[in-house]
Simulated assay, not measured.
Amino acid sequence: MKALTMTAALLAATALPALADDAATCGTVRYSDPGWTDITATNGVAAVLLESLGYTPDIATLSVPVGYEALKNGQTDLFLGNWMPAQQKFRDDLDAAGTIDVLAQNLEGAKFTLAVNKAGADAGVTDFADLDAQKDAFGGKIYGIEPGAPANQSIQAMIEADEFGLGDWELVESGEQAMLAQVSRSGDSPVVFLAWAPHPMNEAIDITYLSGGDKQFGPDFGGATVHTLARKEWVAACPNAARLFSQLVFDVPMENVLMGKILDDGADAKDAAKEWLAQNPDAIDTWLDGVTTLDGRPGADAVKAAVAG
């Protein structure tokens, strides 16, 4: 796959031994899901791969702050959803603790910032600085995701600092699906909300990403990379599984497909992943290079057999 970066390839080739058998204690792999469909999709891919290799995935639904604490305290082994730079403060905390390895940059080309629907763009809002003049049309509300999410915290800080004149606006916190349902219900009424790619919302909704939010979300409309983090102790104890995750690298089109299956078709994340894997055997060869099953058999063959059934 094009998304397999040279950095990830070098890491896989040099940092972790090939065909490394894991102890039976590595059989359960614990990781978390903040309730975002993109991470649910990639977690689903990981679960299918792990199960095909004889491991048991244990996925806990945890908010972003709680998920990072769980990783820091050894309650989970991995996190596939470290969005940077939006989650920089959590990374700073983990880096200071010295207990975490960055196994891979698993996605590039992502973005994450405020956006408006077609009615909002038609009202002339294309930049953060345009919002306050249209406060009444927007109801003075900005729709965010789940409470505690770093993006929500950035919005709340912007409101409290009265940046762009938004000091009297309200942040409405909800989950991803509730937020998107609000956008869908808005019809011809302007609405401003958190938007990101990859996500099928970019196909289903006429979205205009707002410029001007570099301070809050970073340049290039909150341009982001996503990273896989793991506990150092787990990496050392379970080198075979760690090698898999060091090579597990995605791309935006792939995630859009998987997320569409989950959101639009109601598919289970693992079912969507299994279907995609069956149609993309080259990805299996890339991700499973040098990886074995838990009992030491060739990993790629095991995964191909599992998804073909």
Rank of each mutant, 00 (worst) to 15 (best):
K2P: 09
K2F: 00
L4F: 03
M6K: 07
T7I: 03
A9L: 03
A9P: 00
L11W: 01
A13C: 04
A18R: 09
L19E: 15
D22Y: 05
A23F: 03
T25R: 12
I39T: 15
T40M: 02
T42Y: 04
T42E: 12
T42S: 10
A46M: 07
L50T: 13
L53T: 10
P57M: 12
I59K: 10
I59C: 13
L62R: 14
S63E: 09
S63M: 05
V66D: 15
Y68T: 04
A70L: 07
K72P: 00
N73S: 12
Q75K: 13
L80T: 05
P85E: 09
R91S: 03
D92F: 06
D93E: 04
D93T: 00
A96N: 14
G98M: 08
T99S: 13
D101M: 06
L107S: 02
F112E: 06
T113L: 04
A123T: 10
V125Q: 02
Q134E: 08
G144T: 02
E146G: 03
E146S: 11
P147W: 04
A149F: 01
A149Q: 10
A151H: 12
M158D: 15
A161T: 13
A161L: 11
L166G: 02
G167H: 02
S174C: 08
E176M: 04
S189W: 05
P190Y: 05
W196V: 00
W196F: 14
W196A: 12
W196K: 11
A197N: 14
N202S: 04
T208L: 02
S211I: 00
G212R: 10
K215M: 13
D220H: 03
V226H: 03
E233T: 05
W234D: 09
W234I: 07
V235D: 14
A237I: 07
C238I: 12
N240W: 10
A241H: 11
F245K: 15
Q247W: 06
Q247Y: 10
E255V: 02
N256T: 03
L258M: 01
A267M: 15
A267F: 14
K270R: 15
K274W: 04
E275Y: 10
E275V: 11
D282Y: 07
I284C: 13
D285T: 08
T292S: 11
G296H: 06
A300H: 06
